[in-house]
Design a protein around this nucleic acid. Structure first.
Lengths: 322, 322
DNA sequence: CTGAAAGCGCTAACAC
DNA sequence: GTGTTAGCGCTTTCAG
């Protein structure tokens, strides 16, 4: 197919080794022969075979990225950021989507290993000791994002707990006295990795039980949370606010509230989490928790590449929110 | 690192060739030795080195995917579909994002070539004879999506022209007599590949000049189309409809109209294109043109893989819309 | 400064 | 049926 190092060597009357020296700027080569080789290479539009190089060097300059899907708006923003930053460092990405299926995830990680990616950025659906041990056995640099697995790995994310607590305080300040919390993933508690969601729940509970306040929220974990919500009396003597563990749910709830004729935020309060970019088109404005999702992506890349090239993980502080 | 075919050969007291036969189900091997080899392989958790295999076979089982970005909602839906379908066929994807920069795109395509992807799915920002010749020189199976380049390649997309024409007719039926068309990409006419946008424009013009109708639309191609729109008197003796070449613009326009206090669709008509999934959360409901964006992705994968494995492109008819 | 040669791990054609 | 061997294209060590 393409022109090889060998052909260039033949044409220049030198050996493949010398061509390699010229092409890769290694030392120990006569400037004149180097120039000539480079000329010929350019002439022939030589393009190195990445595959062969990787095999020889044992390094692929590829990062594996494991995400749930690209439907959730945050995930595509995340991926966009990861792709961009990786490219800047000369690494490229190998994206696999698990669809939140733990078995699938294991298979796909194994696949990335077989493809000899240099490192992995993992938004995991698996959890637990066994899985952690498996990851360790892979002996590959790995950075976890959004869902924590264990302290064996760098973790990039925000302080979800604190963020949700702040959100709760904000809601209480506005005078709501009754809280409905929507978080379907909690139904998978113990089954899959819902670390982020659990953190947010903790934040919720924390916010509802301090500073003299003590409110017990009504927690909805049904998959069909709209149906569940429909069973609840939303207007009563106490003003109700519906908090959602992410904007996606909040948007669905908003649609529901609209069809029911409830006014937001007067009749019912509503709050999301993530500040996905489409919110700017939504009316009424949805209250939410904002943080830099792209930054999670870029930090993950930097942390991973740092590990690859310097040999150690950098400790990344939890990112901010507001 | 991992256990190799050679080690297995040693352990089983056979040759690497035989191990290969067992592992890859090739014929000409004693069932008994095969069983033994497979056992040992499983025991040692043998994992084939994809890199080495690719080098030896000259096939990577990887598809390169070239998109603008993942910000546009349609693009992430597209990518999600591509990843999923590829996986089903045992191919994996190598995603690169051009950010609509033609030079960048060329660089990234070259990169995919160097990585020896088996085929490419291309949503191109480049166009023209020269670029087409370049693509041909690559001698690699390639499928174009959304933006047409030339008939040298399979093209997967919808009949944008007809779809827009239908949309226009629909708008006219509703009694609007003045049309503003928003399509900033048209400013790049001749510079980058805006095939899809041009088709939509043709559809628009077609719809406005037939069946006795003859309306000249006001076409806005400014990057800051909101500012441009702000210069225009929207309420007058003739009812105005604003058509947008995609939902993204329509959403921005809707925000603008809301702040100006215009009622949609009474004061001003508004129509988008794409039916991106977030529209279901938008009020008032945005009129739009719907088509199966995921299908473009899956068809592209199938068309490309068909070419890879059968050796010929399948002709894919333009997909439907409504 | 340059060449020769051994490998990276796997495949496949050709012997035995 | 099985072993041998020559690659795939590039890197790298060791002589010279």
């Amino acid at each position: 197919m393409g022109v090889t190092i060998k052909e260039i060597a033949n044409i220049c009357g030198v050996s493949p080794g010398t061509v390699d020296r010229a092409l890769n700027g290694r030392s120990g080569i006569n400037p004149k022969t180097k120039v000539k080789i480079l000329e010929v290479a350019k002439e022939l539009n030589y393009q190195p075979d990445h595959m062969a190089r990787s095999l020889a060097k044992g390094k692929t300059m590829t990062l594996g990225v494991v995400l749930f899907d690209l439907y959730n708006r945050s995930f595509s923003q995340l991926m966009n950021a990861i792709e961009g930053r990786s490219k800047e460092y000369g690494y490229f990405v190998h994206l696999v989507l698990t669809d939140k299926d733990p078995q699938n995830e294991k298979k796909l990680i194994q696949h990335l290993i077989n493809r000899k990616v240099d490192g992995i950025i993992l938004f995991s659906v698996n959890k637990g000791e066994e899985f952690n041990a498996y990851l360790k056995s892979l002996k590959i640099p790995l950075v976890t994002i959004c869902n924590h697995i264990s302290d064996d790995w760098s973790y990039i994310g925000i302080n979800d707990r604190l963020a949700m607590k702040d959100a709760v305080n904000c809601v209480l300040d506005r005078g709501y006295e009754r809280i409905v919390y929507i978080c379907p993933p909690l139904a998978y508690s113990g089954l899959t990795n819902i670390y982020t969601q659990e953190e947010r729940l903790h934040g919720l509970m924390g916010g509802l039980h301090e500073n003299g306040v003590s409110i017990d929220p009504l927690i909805i974990t049904e998959k069909d949370y709209i149906a569940a919500l429909d069973q609840i009396q939303l207007k009563g003597d106490k003003r109700t606010a519906i908090l959602c563990s992410c904007d996606n749910y909040a948007l669905e709830v908003m649609n529901y509230l609209k069809t029911k004729g409830y006014k937001i935020p007067d009749d019912v309060g509503l709050m999301g989490f993530d500040n996905i970019d489409v919110l700017k088109y939504i009316t009424p404005k949805l209250s939410t928790v904002e943080y830099a999702i792209e930054e999670i992506g870029t930090m993950a890349v930097e942390c991973l590449i740092n590990k690859l090239e310097e040999g150690s993980y950098t400790r990344v502080p939890l990112l901010g929110h507001r």
